[in-house]
Design a binder for these strands. Structure first.
Lengths: 100, 100, 100, 100
DNA sequence: ACCGTGGTTAGCTTTC
DNA sequence: GAAAGCTAACCACGGT
């Protein structure tokens, strides 16, 4: 068994092998679509990262200490995560004692 | 309201240091605004990361090998970056010879 | 002898470059020493990881739910880290207002 | 007082479920012991990681390129693992032909 | 027994 | 040049 739909270099279009997994055919098209969607999202992600950087820069030019700001953001994130995990733990307890 | 790490202990308002950053005053409000903007963007960033994960999952369930896909995306990104750097270099050349 | 990835191709011993990092000479010996120290420590680290695994296994065979245990450990670690970060933040504040 | 995540909400002590895991009773003590053993080991693990970092730092200050060093360590590890797997395979062969 | 998921770790990038 | 945060590969575990 192999899921080699994604096999590439693929010279000739012909069905030179019954194992040929649609290289360059519709599978290739689908793959391309997937990859382009991913790339688009990664592009957006990168832009957000840059926006964040800019905010820090702006804050800094306003006189704030970015190191402190980062620490604050980090602590608040930890709070959030902690609460989330505590809720998960509670769920876990409940299912452990058959209260799920 | 909840965990206001961003609310300051804020001792004396006085300018005990000419670099004093307006602790607890209007500066606190501005800081809070900055931090919330940052948190919002980080939230969006996280969502995008999840979207990307989902696409990989979808592709996988279609039969594609995600490890290969990741490699492809990575390679294409390198191409992009390389091209971008080459263009920057070209700009540099142009400005160097007064064609900016 | 076996896998001497750390043994250098090392051509001429000569100082053909004043930046030369002593390739194949005494530098090689020092490098080897560094690498072996690292490998030893990584080995110990690996053993600790295995010990931890064993404890979880033992706990599991005693009837505990390891998933819950892992969550507890994780939460307690977060507490520790949070406290540490809060102290750092305090220091940061102090130095920011010139009380360092 | 500190963060006793490990203390249980612990409702009825009774065996309200035959699957009940002794919540809050002697099981709690055992659990606590397990968790503390784990935390101790993880602490040691962390210290080793720091030691390793220091060695890299020291090597760097001696003029070595840590990036290269990391690659070497990684390659040697692969060698080691490969050899180990080959030996396992050999053992397998031996037992297969009754030479175990 | 395998797959999928989540956690861990190491390496890279960027900041100070 | 050192330190930290972010990202991406890796691995181990639990569930099906």
């Amino acid at each position: 068994m192999d899921n080699n739909v994604a096999n590439f270099p693929a010279g000739e279009e012909s069905g030179n092998k019954e194992e040929a997994k649609d290289v360059g055919g519709v599978g290739g098209a689908r793959l391309k679509a997937f990859i382009e969607r991913i790339e688009r999202l990664e592009e957006e992600k990168k832009e957000l990262a840059e926006d964040i950087k800019e905010i820090y820069a702006e804050a800094k030019s306003t006189g704030f200490d970015t190191k402190i700001m980062r620490k604050i953001v980090s602590l608040r994130k930890m709070d959030t995560e902690k609460r989330r995990e505590e809720e998960e733990l509670l769920e876990l307890y409940k299912s452990a004692i058959g209260l799920a």
